[in-house]
């Protein structure tokens, strides 16, 4: 594990009692995933060693929480919410447009390796429906076809 990542994880570990490093496992996995784009088996093992956890306990967490990806997701993972509040404001049209434009279905990566499309559950921001996030961090709200086209252009 590289130093930069260790430092970020240490900051999370410091939030908990010294004998409870495991509490930082979600944060540690998120940090690893943000670095690589997804979580490899090595990442899981590294986190397990670093936090003194059985590897299986780390894998359990990585497979339980939806925002972790155990397979590559391209350069940009677009997670679009299709739940009720977004659905009522025509998220399905945005999904269709994205699938057509990128020539992919959910959980597939575009040919150029740039985009992966994921169907997401409620993101707790329904005021801005329909919406999507890029790589789990940046949210784009009040989407329409035009805005989506611009976003795809901006993501170089």
């Amino acid at each position: 594990m590289i130093e930069k990542l260790k430092k970020l994880i240490d900051k999370e570990v410091a939030k908990y009692p010294t004998d409870k490093k495991q509490s930082a496992v979600i944060a540690a996995l998120a940090i690893m995933q943000h670095h690589r784009g997804w979580l490899s088996q090595d990442d899981i093992s590294d986190v397990a060693v670093y936090l003194d956890m059985p590897e299986i306990a780390v894998l359990e967490v990585a497979t339980f929480y939806n925002m972790f990806d155990l397979k590559p997701v391209g350069k940009y993972k677009l997670s679009i919410c299709t739940n009720i509040s977004c659905m009522l404001r025509d998220a399905d049209q945005i999904v269709d447009h994205l699938k057509k434009t990128l020539k992919i279905d959910f959980n597939e990566i575009s040919k150029d390796g740039k985009f992966c499309l994921k169907e997401s559950e409620c993101m707790g921001a329904c005021e801005g429906a329909p919406l999507l996030t890029v790589n789990n961090q940046k949210m784009y709200e009040h989407l329409d076809v035009k805005k989506v086209d611009q976003l795809l252009k901006d993501l170089k």
Partner: peptide, 11 residues
């Protein structure tokens, strides 16, 4: 941890 569809007040 608001994630029930339609919830966005804590944000």
């Amino acid at each position: 941890d608001e994630g029930e569809p339609g919830t966005f007040k804590d944000r």
